[in-house]
Design a protein around this nucleic acid. Sequence first.
DNA 1: GCGATGATGTTATCAATGTCAACTTCGAAT
DNA 2: ATTCGAAGTTGACATTGATAACATCATCGC
Lengths: 206, 206
Amino acid sequence: MSTSNRPAYHHGALRPALIAAARALLDEGGPDAVGLREAARRVGVSPTATYRHFEDKEALLAALALDGFREFGAALAAAERAPEPLSAMGEAYVDFALAKPGMFRLMFSPLLSARHDDEALQAAASAAFTTLARGVGAGSDAPPGAQIPAAAIAAWSLVHGLSHLILDGVLPRAEAETFKQAILGLAPGERDAHGQRRADMAEEPR
Amino acid sequence: MSTSNRPAYHHGALRPALIAAARALLDEGGPDAVGLREAARRVGVSPTATYRHFEDKEALLAALALDGFREFGAALAAAERAPEPLSAMGEAYVDFALAKPGMFRLMFSPLLSARHDDEALQAAASAAFTTLARGVGAGSDAPPGAQIPAAAIAAWSLVHGLSHLILDGVLPRAEAETFKQAILGLAPGERDAHGQRRADMAEEPR
DNA sequence: GCGATGATGTTATCAATGTCAACTTCGAAT
DNA sequence: ATTCGAAGTTGACATTGATAACATCATCGC
């Protein structure tokens, strides 16, 4: 019991602690609000201690994004097991973006897209996207890396675009639910020339 | 002619010059690459001179985005006059994003979305979006500010999402043309439960 | 003409950030 | 027990956005 009163020179689990602090910053102010120094400050450690666990700031962000892609993939996988996988995954996609805007933005940030060397990150991203593609119409019979079906691209673009438009404040957040229903209802249904929406009542209210 | 040999204490047209320099930075490295000091450096003026023309860095970015929204609106308006406005505007949307990625990202950056006080910026953005909404199915009979039809939201999300996915390197840039065709061809057509795409042959090849 | 005046630029300075180098502390393996 | 490498610390540097105080110049009332 003599080790718990002094501030402990060695933190013991700095890396996860830094990731947690950075995650908080990400949630509070988006990717730009994540700083090495601020994260270190919150953990109560000197700024340069971070370099023992992350090559640079970008590596810290990559670690965050890795968690993000895993959570994202899990959410999509869960939705895939729903009775209506297509709309469930679409909803999960948008919900994730709205619930974790900072993370969502980070995951698709150009900073990370350039990180083609980070295998774990790429793997997690691929896994999530593969789940998405599977649930969205790209049959599992298609060999990996093959041409993605047009419908899958469209469905992906649809949910991704809506997520961004709402996140960026272009479309009002207050009506997010409405927009979601409009888009998801569009997937199994169809629309006429005047854009009249056919509401989809198959979704059980939760 | 005695005024042209000395470096001229007063630049004369600093504001547009700074905007041009910042625009170059934006095109080169995206929004994060735009810096007050670097812009001033390129124009050959002291860092703080910028504050005579822009309240802060964000104001400079807002000025850039203003130009961007005007160009964007013009491109959409031009597409609206095409024989097939819907797909032409969709294509114009994606093309703009791919041709001016930095600007596109800036225009939808959360930094600027928070600028609700900047009237010129909001006006230019609204103008562009109104053009888009008009061409995309929201009849001009709808009162401004009214409910946006679901189909319009969907079409917007579609092109916006595809733009982002390609821009962020998630979808390969090399196949951008293919993706564009897939999505634009999908707009007037429909697809069955298995995501089988019905290629739309109505589009004339250009 | 001409001197005050306000707009435009400049220099000096700050606080904050990412990053590097050199030193310190401490747990573990020999 | 001694050593050795991993984990943290202090100190410093360059860069950036921003403020304050000073310099320059063009223009307007006289």
